[in-house]
Structure formats: C-alpha cells, structure tokens
Design a protein around this nucleic acid. Structure first.
Length: 575
DNA sequence: GCCGTTTTCGGCCCGACTGTTTTCAGTCG
C-alpha cells in the first residue's frame, strides 16, 4: 500500500515528465498541487480512499482521484507507464539541476539524443551544449556549475542549521548604512522543518551597498545573480541564500509577499481583488482609481484587507485566512509558555552534563519542572540504566531536590525503550515507581507497518507510560520515520490519555506539524521537550514550539505549559 | 487538471534576472 509520500513522489514525477513533454502548464501545476497536498496531509490518503472521499483532498479532482485509486489498488499506473514511453523518466532528474528547466531539457535531450545526467555532464564538458539553439558558453558553464552544486547539496537543510545561518547574514546586513530592517522570509520565516534556500528581506532606500555587502560575505563561494532588487549567492557548503531589498515604506507588502506560502498569497490576492484592490509585493493598487497604497508593515497589509495579522507559521493556505476573517485565529502557544522539560539526559546515560549542571542550566532558563529521562537498560550504546543504577540516581535526585528546594521540581524518570517485540524495557512495577515514563522507539524502525504500529500501541496503552517520545523516530534530513499507522495511534492516545511528544530537537521535530495538528483535532495531549543532552540543547525549544504553532496549537494542548501542581497531579493520577 | 457568492467554462501570479538576443525566452521564486 503506497503512503502519502510515495503518492506525492509519483505525481511529482508525472508533473516533471508532462512539463518536459510540453503539456499545458496548468495541467502540470495541477499535478504538483496534488502532490504537495498529499505530502502535507495529516491523515493517510488510503483512509480517504477507503471512505471513498479522495476528492475531499485539496487539489484532487476526478482524474487524480482515479489515478490514486489505481495506484492504491494495483500499485501501478497505466497513465504513467505510457508517459514514461514518451518522455524518458531519467529526464525528471534533470529538473533538479539549477539553471535547467523543462524547455532546455527537452531541447538538449532531443538534439543530443541523451537521457542520463552522466551523459549531460559529458556533453557539457565536451563543449557540445554551447552551439545548441538559444545556448551559449555561459549557459554551458551554468549547467556544469549546476551539476556540481547538485552533487554538493544534500537537498533541503534543517531549520536548525538554516535559522542560525540566516541570523548571521541578517546581523551583517543590518550593519550596512541605510538599512532600517532585515528579516527572514519564505519557509524559513514560516518555520518549516526544512528549508531549501534562505530568503532574506532588507529594508533600505538604496540597495547597492546591501547587495555589495551580501555578495561579499565570508564563505560565499559563488554569486548566482546580482541585481538592484534581488541577489543570490551560494556558500561553500552548498547552501544558497537570496536577499531582496525594498524601500522601507514598501517593506510590509514586500515581507508579506516573500514570506508566502504561495497558496496563502494566492488566497490573499483574491481577497484583495474582491475589495477592488490588486496586491503585489510593491503595494496595493486600487483597480478603479489607480491609487497606490503603501504598507510599511505587514500589520497594515492585513489590516487593509480587514484581517488580523496572521502569524507566519500559519500561512500555508489552509483555513487561516477564513479564521482571520472571522476573528477566530487561535492564540498560538509561545516559547515563554513552556514551564517544564520532561525529556532530557544526564551523564547517567548519554548526556554530556551531570544532573547538577543540567539542573542549574534549567533554572537559568526559568524552567519549573524537569525530568531526568536517562535511557533504559537495553540501549547499551547509551549506557542505559539498570534498575540497580536507578536506585543510585533516585538518591542523587532526592539530594538535588533538597539542595534546590522550591526553585525547581526534579522528577526521577526514564526514557524506556519500546523493544523490537513491543514489550517495554522494565517491568510494570518498576515503571510504576518512577515519577514519569517516556516510551520511545530507537531500534528496529524498519519493521512492517502493522508490526511497528502494534509495538507503539503497546506503549500507548500501558498505564504507566506518560509520554510517547519522538514517535516516528525520524531524523532530519536523512532518516524517514517508521511506517506507522498514525491515525490509529493517535486515536488510541486520545483514549488512553498518554501525551504525544513534539521533539524540539531540530534533527527530529517529531511529531511533525501535520501529525500534531491531527493529534489536537482528536483531543490528544501533546508534550514539547528538547531531549537535551547538553546545556545548549535547551535552547532548541523554539523549534519545537514552532512545530506546535504550525499545527495551530494553543497552550491548552500542551502539558508543558501547565502549572507544576497540575502537571504533578496529572502524573500521579496516571500512576 | 482543478475549481466555483463573476460557477460547468475559462481562468489559473507574475516580476526580476540572465543570457542570447536585437526585442525575447527560459528559469526562478
């Protein structure tokens, strides 16, 4: 049975091949839209399919619903097999080469009768591209550089790497004379778990000094383009960034536009047209009077449309504009609402710092409750704790608690392994003696869907388990999560009352925002934790909060916002 | 191919930048 990602990949492939074939662009766009929509679904498409409700998926109409049906029932698609005979499927990989688009791909492949990337590189190196129609020496070099950058780049980068780098660039650009503001934009500002390029928006009257500063930043290895309003560069590690400069009086429309998402902007422009206004990155234009309205801030942009300002994390073109219209936007959770960290490690297992150091660092950050969830015995590589060593840890926590008194509550807990056979790593009576239990998967993540789902359900239904840690086990950007039936798991969690974790580690961010959104819909409690192994890891909290914000969560959904007494009562009641 | 308080046809974002042109095509976001 194909999952959402596989379906999305299939439709993306179809879109690429159709575009190279020269099919009308809107058909291609329709396939891409459906692919994006499938990839971002909070439930499996196969469930919509079973309920015969495929066309309820945004961007899926009759034709694509029929194709999903064929893919899910047979695992194949006649339409795609036929298409592959018309356009060689290897050409889809060419679409990833910067500077190559569908037109050039079709032309080069036809003229030179080649389909593989390797042959393309050979042809470029042999100087065979420069004489093709519409090409020249520079296009040939651009393709060679594109191929080189493709092999250097690992694709999308984690928000945990992207945001600090963007902040560095922003700090440098803010020092340029005449710059009044600089902000991240694009998926970076919307806090997606991974981002492609870094988009940065600068407010300044004169752009030339900004562009000069940007294109000569340290570690810039190539300048991909440099213009009056926009420049882009590639850094030595393959990461790309681009900067737009707009005058301060137009910064609001420009920032709104550059933040996206595309879907959000399309809807917003439509709403503007309904009011007789045409919205662009430069201004609103009154269609009748031709009068221009400038917005220096985003707040003014939304206000002009009669909307409350929409937090960037919500701007994915779902229901946020309708909610803003009805003045029903959720009051999103904020990092300052978090009072506890219920998943962290010390030197008892694989943490870098002693419990004392971790406690002091937590107090410094204003945390009121922390739980030491060192690994359990079977996770040997992490120095997992035997029950004997737990006794020692319990005694030390008691001592620490005495030392810090009212300053902080320290819980004796465990991150207990959900073993390959589905059993937990400690017997129930021992789990019952702990203040808090996080149950997580670290091993045998590639088990078949049914087996690994069953395994997680065992933990969800164990009355001593309080939190399911990083539920899918995904690692960004390289490791996909386990193939879980998340809908079944979330429904079970709603029933058992266990909290599902949103791991704030930027290399996990697990649950993701789609699953977190679905969890909240089903009434499941959530818990945002850093899984800290060092002092700096505490500061990853905002990434977890960002996931929760993208999921539309308020602080009510998240147990870490609860006052200590409420949290401790809840834990006691769970046993 | 999708979609719908301009609905079952006819739209679907479009501007900046680059390179190859000589007024424009292709790519990108």
């Amino acid at each position: 049975m194909m999952n959402n990602k596989q379906l999305a990949d299939t439709f993306t492939l179809i879109a690429d091949l159709l575009e190279i074939k020269g099919e009308i662009i809107y058909k291609t766009i329709a396939y891409r839209k459906a692919a994006e929509s499938l990839a971002g679904l909070s439930r499996e498409a196969s469930e919509y399919w079973k309920e015969k409700k495929l066309q309820e998926i945004p961007g899926v109409g009759k034709a694509i619903a029929e194709k999903i049906d064929e893919l899910l029932s047979t695992g194949k698609l006649e339409f795609l097999e036929k298409l592959k005979k018309e356009v060689h499927p290897d050409l889809a990989t060419w679409m990833k080469v910067p500077s190559l688009g569908p037109k050039k791909i079709a032309m080069i492949s036809k003229e030179l009768k080649i389909t593989s990337l390797a042959d393309l590189e050979k042809a470029a190196k042999a100087g065979k591209l420069r004489n093709l129609p519409g090409m020249g020496a520079k296009s040939e070099t651009a393709i060679l550089e594109g191929l080189a950058s493709l092999s250097r780049r690992t694709g999308r980068i984690s928000i945990g790497k992207a945001l600090p780098l963007a902040n560095e660039i922003i700090a440098a650009l803010k020092k340029v004379k005449g710059v009044t503001d600089a902000q991240p934009a694009g998926s970076l500002r919307r806090m997606r778990s991974t981002v492609g390029d870094l988009d940065i928006l600068v407010a300044a009257k004169d752009s030339s000094a900004v562009m000069d500063a940007f294109t000569t930043l340290p570690r810039v290895s190539r300048v991909l383009g440099k213009g009056e309003t926009k420049s882009s560069v590639e850094f030595s590690d393959g990461v790309r960034a681009q900067v737009w400069v707009h005058p301060p009086e137009k910064f609001g429309t420009a920032l709104q536009y550059a933040t996206g998402s595309k879907d959000h902007n399309v809807q917003l422009r439509q709403l503007a047209l309904d009011k007789g206004l045409s919205l662009s990155e430069h201004s609103f234009l009154n269609v009748k009077t031709k009068k221009e309205i400038f917005c220096a801030t985003e707040d003014e942009v939304y206000k002009t449309l009669g909307l409350a300002w929409i937090p960037p994390e919500l701007r994915e073109g779902r229901d946020e504009i309708a909610l803003a219209k009805a003045n029903k936007l959720p009051k999103l959770i904020e990092a300052k609402d978090i009072k506890s960290n219920l998943h962290m490690h010390s030197t008892y297992s694989d943490g870098a710092l002693s419990m004392l150091d971790m406690t002091q660092a937590a107090i410094k950050r204003g945390l009121q409750v922390i739980a030491f969830t060192d690994h359990s015995v079977s996770l040997g590589v992490t120095n997992g704790l035997s029950i004997e060593r737990h006794k020692q840890q319990a005694a030390e926590i008691k001592k620490l608690q005495k030392q810090f008194g009212d300053e902080i509550t320290i819980l004796h807990a465990s991150e207990v392994e959900i073993k390959a056979d589905g059993s937990l790593d400690y017997p129930d009576d021992f789990l019952a003696s702990l203040d808090l239990v996080v149950a997580s998967l670290h091993s045998s993540l590639r088990q078949p869907r049914e087996k690994i789902t069953e395994r997680l359900l065992n933990a969800v239904n164990n009355p001593h388990v309080d939190i399911i840690g990083h539920p899918t086990g995904r690692e960004i950007p390289d490791r996909e999560g386990a193939d879980l039936d998340m809908e079944t798991i979330l429904k079970a969690a709603a029933k058992s009352g266990v909290a599902m974790e949103i791991s704030a580690s930027p290399y996990r961010l697990d649950l993701d925002d789609h699953h977190a959104r679905r969890a909240a819909e089903l009434g499941v409690l959530l818990s945002i934790n850093t899984d800290a192994h060092s002092e700096q890891d505490y500061d990853m909290l905002p990434y977890g909060v960002a996931i929760a914000r993208r999921a539309g969560l308020t602080k009510d959904n998240v147990i870490n916002t609860w006052p200590p007494k409420k949290l401790l009562d809840w834990l006691k009641k769970r046993g």
